[in-house]
């Protein structure tokens, strides 16, 4: 059992580990282990508009998608978690549907639909499509958070003299903040990583990074991909480890400093 486990760990870890040395390789094509090391492909990435533009497009599209998704999902989640009404279970189900439909099916639909609207190959078109795909993910995260929210906190606030609006601003929102942030982060990543729909509808104008990577892998297997992979990998690592590091740092600070520090900065 142990041996199988270790083999599985190697199987999972190997592809993740291999891209980092590849990005420093000086070989012209896929060769591992690399014959030599240099930073050339990093320079290539950061000076090539063919790579930087899609990166920028992706950031732009993912950001807009996140904003639009949250604007739609936050009120809807409150309605679905906090209220009971006829057709609620159907609405719950509909929220998840974009997750159930294979992306290739949506890609065909968007290709034709956005084409009719003259939105194909535009940033706006990609944002509209990505928002649909991000909705269920943001909803799942946020509704789990909202279900765990203790309504007595809001009751307490009201009994203490806070109007419904004040309650929302001073109590509901700050307590839900981590859930909202994670929900937004998931929406962002969903859009940033989404490949299939982007391949079909982003065109050259709104080309996203995954689309560019896909084309590049398909055509020439440009080693710059290893650089991007390493950078993306690093971003994930930071995102995963940062909360732990931050918590550790904070508790260490809290231990070393007396409890006189102003709580205003929290």
């Amino acid at each position: 059992m142990r041996l199988i486990g270790i083999l599985v760990i190697v199987f999972i870890a190997a592809p993740l580990v291999i891209v980092v040395p590849m990005s420093f390789s000086d070989a012209r094509s896929l060769q591992f282990p690399p014959p030599g090391y240099w930073l050339g492909y990093y320079r290539a990435y950061f000076s090539d508009m063919n790579w930087l533009l899609p990166t920028w497009n992706s950031i732009l599209i993912a950001t807009a998608t996140t904003v639009l998704t949250m604007a739609l999902v936050v009120p809807a989640t409150f309605a679905l978690v906090r209220h009971r009404f006829a057709g609620k279970s159907f609405a719950d189900l509909m929220m998840l549907m974009p997750l159930a439909v294979p992306h290739i099916v949506m890609a065909v639909g968007y290709y034709s639909f956005l084409g009719d609207l003259r939105l194909v190959h535009t940033h706006f078109g990609v944002v509209l499509a990505h928002t649909c795909l991000s909705v269920p993910i943001a909803f799942l995260v946020l509704s789990a958070n909202l279900k765990g929210f203790d309504r007595n906190l809001e009751r307490a606030a009201q009994s203490l003299g806070a109007s419904p609006v004040q309650t929302f601003i001073h109590v509901t929102l700050p307590i839900l903040r981590p859930g909202l942030l994670i929900s937004a982060l998931f929406a962002f990543i969903q859009s940033f990583d989404e490949t299939v729909v982007a391949i079909f509808i982003s065109g050259r104008n709104a080309e996203t990074l995954p689309r560019k990577m896909f084309d590049s892998i398909r055509q020439e297997a440009d080693p710059v991909i290893a650089v991007i992979s390493t950078l993306l990998f690093l971003a994930v690592l930071v995102a995963l480890v940062a909360p732990f590091a931050w918590r550790g740092l904070r508790s260490r600070l809290a231990e070393s400093a007396p409890r006189s520090a102003s709580p205003a900065g929290q």
């Binding site: 291999i18 990583d193 490949t195 992979s229």
Partner: peptide, 8 residues
């Protein structure tokens, strides 16, 4: 990203 993993 599964593109990264595919590339690997």
């Amino acid at each position: 990203s599964f593109l990264v993993r595919t590339y690997a």
